[in-house]
Structures are given as C-alpha cells and as structure tokens.
C-alpha cells in the first residue's frame, strides 16, 4: 500500500481523497514558488531603480559608507541605550496611569464628578496636542518654573512628557476594552452580590485587558520610535548621536545606523503583536 493512503484510525482513504490531497499539495507547492519568484523580481526592480537613479553615487557616499557606519555605530548604540531606558521606564508608568484614567471615567458616583471631569479634560488635551509639542513644553517649560522638586534632568523630563502624551491614548484603549465586555457579564456579577468595584476587578477588567493587548502593543511600538523625539530637548540618544556625527563628518550613514536599531527593536514587538492577534482569532474560531 503506497504511503499517505491510510487515514487516522486505520481507515483506508478512497482514491478520490488520495487524488484530492495530491492536487492540494501541488497547489501549495506552486503558491510557494510563485511567492518566492515575485518577491525576487520585486526586490530586483527596486534595487535597479535606486541604483540607476542619477544621484545614486552621491547618496551611496553619504548614506551607505561602511567606514562611517563602523565608526559611528558604538556611539549610536550607546545613545540607543538611552532610548531603551526611556521606553522601559515610561511604558509601565503609561500602563498604570492609563488604566487609572480609564477606571476614573467609568466611576458613576456623583462624588467623583470632579475627578471624572478632570480625566475627560486630560484625555481631550493630551490626545490633541502633538507629542513633539508636549515634549518641548515639558522639557523647557517645567524647569523654567523653578519650582522646588521639579526635575531638571532632560531624560526625566522626556519620560514625563512621553508619559503624559501616551497615557491619554492608552486610557482610551482601556476604555474601549471595557466597552467590549458584554453587559450581561456585569449584570451577572452584580446579581451575584458583587459591588461595582468587585465586578470591575474580577469580571470586567480581566476580559477587557485581554481584548486590548494587540492595540496596546501597537501603541508600545509607536512609543519606542517616539523616544527619539526627546532629542529635541537635549537628550543625547541614538538620533542625537547620529546627528552630532553627521554634522561633524558631513556623512549621513549614522542616521541609517540609528534607523536600523529602531527597526531591530520594533520588529520583534510587531511580530509578537501579530502572534497574539492570530492566537486570539484562533481561540474565537475554536
């Protein structure tokens, strides 16, 4: 008996099924070949267009200089470590603050009206103002107040500004997540005697957070890039290092090095987001 003709459970496959599976395999093989071929042709076309551009020689000298790349890389990497630190400190702060703001907006008791109004105002303002502007205002405005205890270190100010800006987005993501939980869940929790807070804590939030993990990760990716914006208030991070190098040596290759580092950091996060989304889709389908 030829291989592949026995199904699970020892059932012998019919000739029709064997033929059907052979066709499916052939089709899958053909799809794979078409995908590979079209990718190669596409890449070759892009390279051909770029390399044959009239200014290519000058661009290559300015952006693709291996010697400049090797020379600048250690400094750019050192700067990039600052970006990573800013991200690692800002991200948990944003998650906590965003969740708190979302929860405050869900409070219904009249006592909390001022808090609720404040939360609404905060989200309206910081979602509207461009992140770069928030960084400039916080970076130059806060220390100028000369208040006791206000930090004047640029990295701290950068973290504060990014947290202020991103918390507004993340709060809205959490709120959307809370809205996706079916009202029947809350009704069931309350009918069992759980209070509003308990229903939120044990029933609504766990489901809401699960629902918003992919959009949250998307915001993380965005935050990773936006750490470069703090270069504007004098933080020597990857982009700034590249800039310093580029303006002293008249070579832009360090920008490419910085770009490469950011991409290397965001790609794993992006793939992880895809993986989680696919897993959720699979579970829903199951």
């Amino acid at each position: 008996m030829p291989a592949g003709t026995v199904a699970g459970g020892g059932r012998v496959k019919s000739a029709r099924q064997v033929e059907r599976e052979r066709l499916r395999r052939r089709r899958a093989y053909r799809s794979g070949s078409v995908a590979s071929a079209s990718t190669i042709i596409f890449l070759a076309l892009v390279v051909a267009v770029v390399v044959n551009a009239p200014g290519w020689e000058r661009v290559r000298a300015a952006f693709f200089d291996p010697a400049a790349f090797a020379e600048a890389l250690p400094d750019v990497v050192a700067g990039f470590w600052v970006n990573v630190q800013i991200f690692l400190i800002a991200e948990p702060l944003i998650l906590i603050a965003g969740l708190l703001i979302a929860l405050v907006r869900e409070l219904r008791a009249p006592v909390f009206f001022p808090l609720r109004a404040l939360a609404v105002m905060y989200v309206d303002v910081f979602r509207g103002v461009p992140t770069l502007l928030v960084i400039l205002l916080v970076g130059f405005g806060l220390p100028a107040l000369r208040l006791q205890g206000v930090p004047d270190d640029e990295v701290t100010l950068g973290v504060i500004a990014l947290t202020l800006s991103y918390t507004a987005y993340v709060a809205e993501v959490f709120r959307a997540g809370i809205a996706t939980v079916h009202p029947g869940q809350r009704a069931a929790a309350r009918s069992l005697g759980l209070s509003h807070t308990q229903a939120m804590r044990y029933v609504v939030l766990p489901q809401a957070v699960r629902n918003v993990v992919p959009p949250l990760l998307n915001d993380f990716v965005s935050l990773q890039k936006d750490t470069a914006l703090v270069s504007t208030i004098g933080v020597i991070e990857a982009l700034r290092q590249a800039q310093i190098y580029a303006s002293s040596k008249f070579n832009y290759t360090p920008y490419l090095a910085a770009a490469l580092l950011f991409v290397l950091l965001t790609i794993p996060m992006a793939r992880f987001t895809d993986y989680l989304a696919a897993r959720t889709a699979r579970r829903r389908g199951a």
């Binding site: 869940q185 009704a187 069931a188 309350r190 009918s191 069992l192 005697g193 759980l194 029933v203 489901q207």
Partner: peptide, 17 residues
C-alpha cells in the same frame, strides 16, 4: 448589593465568566 446577595438570578444567555 446587600439585596442582591439574598437573591440569585439566572439569565437566558448563561453569562458565565
């Protein structure tokens, strides 16, 4: 909350967590 603790309710769509 105290009232609901004395009453049990079951829904058409189960509403299990």
């Amino acid at each position: 909350d105290a009232v609901r603790k004395r009453i049990g309710m079951v829904f058409q769509s189960y509403n299990l967590f």
